[in-house]
Simulated scan of single mutants.
Amino acid sequence: MTDDELISRYVADVIALLPRRQRADVARELRDLLREELTGPDDTRTLLTRFGHPAEVAARYTAPVALIDPADTRRFLLLAGGGALLVHLGGALLSPHDLAAAAEVTWPVVLGWLGVLVAAFAGTAWWRRRHTGPPAWKPRPPLSDRVNRVGRTAAVAVFALGTLILVDPAAVMHALGAAPAPFAYHPDFLLVRGPVLLTLLILGLALQTTLAWTGRWTRPLHLADLIHSLLVCAAMAWAISAGPVFSAAPTDRTTKAAAALIILITLADLAFRARRLSVAHALAS
């Protein structure tokens, strides 16, 4: 193959990666540039190797089309990895004694989640390039340690009422005129798991009451809240995987599914709050 044939083949590979409207101009410019470079001591193959792979050269002439914008890559990876982890964790919580069966159910969900993410991020990148251009920075509202005391007190009251209902839901259903049997706790649950969960719920009430009283977040309160949330998630996971919670099977299945969903949402919220606290700490240091 002659020098001109090598250059023509190289130029063809470059312009094949470019939009049609650019190909003729780039082909002329690149061919002339390579011929000028060839006047030196290098042979054609050495020159082309040093000049770069055709894909790299094509990227110099036009912005490469990215399925996911570089600015979104970190967020995409966090959502993809975090979502996959949460889905697998949810499957393990609902089928703790048959992880292989749980994986058969969760893997299609994970792949579907990844597909949704890719489509969403690719669509956002396409829209941004076509209509809005590069993303503009917008300042976020400043972080505040203050707490709405009225709202927090109302939340504590609702939390306390919910805790009272959970102590004996069968009695509450009976008082409301509903059948109490489907809401009776299993005797095994009442031995250890129930009291442990109730203790953690009471500790949570005490923590939220303290927060409503002080009216602001402090670093010890943040740390205590994060640790308490992790303990609650661990205790709930243990409670729903160690045996039945309710004697009635339908109520037990529904409760465990709801508990698994609460655990996953809480873990996602904990990750978000931990990241926010880390950023705030780095700014303060």
Rank of each mutant, 00 (worst) to 15 (best):
D3Q: 12
E5C: 02
S8D: 13
S8Y: 00
R9N: 15
I15C: 07
R20D: 13
R21P: 13
Q22C: 05
Q22S: 15
V26W: 05
R28K: 07
E29T: 13
R31F: 11
R35L: 10
E37T: 05
E37P: 01
L38N: 03
T39R: 15
R45E: 13
R45Q: 12
L48G: 04
G52T: 07
E56I: 06
E56H: 14
Y61I: 03
V65H: 05
L67W: 04
D69I: 03
A71W: 00
A71P: 00
T73N: 07
L78N: 09
L79W: 01
G81S: 06
G83Y: 08
G83C: 09
A84M: 08
A84K: 05
A84F: 04
L85C: 09
V87G: 00
G91D: 10
L93F: 07
L94K: 09
S95M: 08
H97Y: 08
H97E: 08
D98F: 11
A102H: 05
A103D: 03
V105G: 02
V118C: 08
A119Q: 07
A122D: 05
G123R: 04
A125D: 08
H131Q: 11
A136I: 08
A136W: 14
W137V: 05
P142I: 06
L143Y: 10
D145I: 10
R146S: 12
R149Y: 06
R149Q: 13
R149D: 00
G151F: 06
A155K: 03
A160Y: 12
T163E: 00
D168L: 15
A171Q: 07
A171V: 06
V172K: 03
V172P: 01
L176F: 14
G177Y: 11
P187Y: 05
L190V: 04
V192F: 14
V192I: 14
V192R: 04
R193Y: 03
G194D: 09
T199R: 10
L200D: 04
L201S: 08
L205H: 03
A206E: 12
Q208A: 10
T210C: 10
L211W: 08
A212M: 11
T214E: 07
T218V: 11
T218Y: 02
P220N: 05
D225G: 14
I227A: 15
H228A: 11
L230N: 08
L231E: 01
V232M: 14
A237T: 07
I240P: 07
I240G: 07
G243M: 06
V245Q: 09
S247A: 15
A248W: 12
R253H: 11
T254E: 13
T255N: 12
K256C: 01
A257T: 13
A260T: 02
I265T: 15
L267K: 01
D269F: 02
F272T: 15
R273W: 02
R276W: 02
V279Q: 09
L283W: 02
L283R: 08
